[in-house]
Simulated assay, not measured.
Amino acid sequence: MAKFDFSELTKFEEDLLELAKDLDKGKHAKKFLRNSGNKLKRRTVNAAKSKTNKRTGNLIKGIKRGKPYKYYVDGSMAVRVYPGSPAFHAHLIDRGHRIVDKNGKEHGFKPGVHFFEAGAKEYEGQYYEDTQKFIDDLLDNHLL
């Protein structure tokens, strides 16, 4: 009858559980999400610059990266890029809007340029690579 030594497998299991506790605290994940959010913001700003003729800087300055937060539905962590000021009308440029005069008469529709979607789509492939590298680094640093 063969005997199996499970001591290394048990140590690996303990290391994985310890890593899961560290991830639950969120220190490593928050740093990764902040960096990813900054990269997404840069891509969004570049998309806004290329798709609009606005050169005053208010549109560009208004694009912000939020704080990493726990998503309320499933507890996963997320970060967002959004137009900063509620008074600033970046959503009108991004999604489009009706053209209305002061009397309320509609004169047409100005289509949106969708720079938030363009920035997200442009960063999507890089995000998967960054996530894979983050997981590999986390496992290498924690389990060795």
Rank of each mutant, 00 (worst) to 15 (best):
residue 36 S to M: 08
residue 66 G to Y: 00
residue 31 K to N: 09
residue 23 L to I: 08
residue 82 Y to R: 09
residue 61 K to C: 05
residue 136 D to A: 15
residue 41 K to A: 02
residue 49 K to G: 00
residue 144 L to N: 11
residue 103 N to E: 13
residue 131 T to Q: 14
residue 87 A to I: 03
residue 38 N to V: 06
residue 28 H to V: 05
residue 68 P to D: 01
residue 73 V to Q: 14
residue 75 G to R: 07
residue 103 N to H: 10
residue 6 F to R: 11
residue 130 D to Y: 01
residue 104 G to N: 09
residue 116 F to M: 12
residue 122 E to W: 08
residue 67 K to E: 15
residue 1 M to G: 11
residue 35 N to T: 11
residue 36 S to K: 08
residue 85 S to N: 13
residue 84 G to W: 00
residue 84 G to H: 02
residue 74 D to G: 08
residue 34 R to K: 15
residue 103 N to G: 07
residue 51 K to T: 13
residue 136 D to C: 01
residue 18 E to L: 11
residue 32 F to T: 00
residue 140 D to K: 15
residue 77 M to V: 05
residue 29 A to N: 05
residue 54 K to P: 00
residue 94 D to F: 03
residue 101 D to T: 03
residue 23 L to N: 09
residue 75 G to T: 02
residue 3 K to H: 13
residue 20 A to I: 13
residue 99 I to L: 13
residue 64 K to D: 09
residue 128 Y to Q: 14
residue 73 V to A: 10
residue 135 I to W: 11
residue 61 K to Q: 13
residue 29 A to S: 12
residue 71 Y to S: 10
residue 94 D to A: 04
residue 28 H to A: 13
residue 58 N to E: 08
residue 80 R to I: 02
residue 62 G to K: 03
residue 78 A to Y: 10
residue 32 F to E: 03
residue 20 A to M: 13
residue 31 K to A: 15
residue 99 I to K: 12
residue 125 G to V: 06
residue 76 S to Q: 12
residue 2 A to M: 07
residue 71 Y to L: 14
residue 8 E to F: 05
residue 86 P to C: 01
residue 129 E to Q: 12
residue 57 G to E: 04
residue 62 G to S: 12
residue 79 V to M: 04
residue 52 T to P: 01
residue 110 K to G: 02
residue 79 V to W: 01
residue 25 K to G: 09
residue 75 G to K: 11
residue 50 S to M: 09
residue 95 R to W: 08
residue 39 K to P: 01
residue 60 I to T: 10
residue 131 T to N: 10
residue 83 P to H: 03
residue 7 S to V: 04
residue 142 H to I: 01
residue 119 G to F: 06
residue 117 E to L: 13
residue 48 A to Y: 05
residue 122 E to D: 15
residue 13 E to Y: 07
residue 126 Q to R: 13
residue 94 D to L: 06
residue 51 K to R: 15
residue 40 L to Q: 06
residue 128 Y to D: 13
residue 35 N to G: 12
residue 14 E to D: 11
residue 105 K to F: 08
residue 27 K to C: 00
residue 19 L to Y: 04
residue 104 G to K: 07
residue 137 D to F: 05
residue 108 G to T: 07
residue 86 P to D: 09
residue 84 G to Q: 04
residue 35 N to E: 14
residue 114 H to A: 08
residue 70 K to D: 11
residue 90 A to D: 01
residue 134 F to W: 09
residue 5 D to W: 04
residue 112 G to S: 10
residue 128 Y to L: 14
residue 119 G to S: 05
residue 91 H to F: 11
residue 128 Y to P: 00
residue 101 D to P: 05
residue 68 P to W: 01
residue 78 A to S: 13
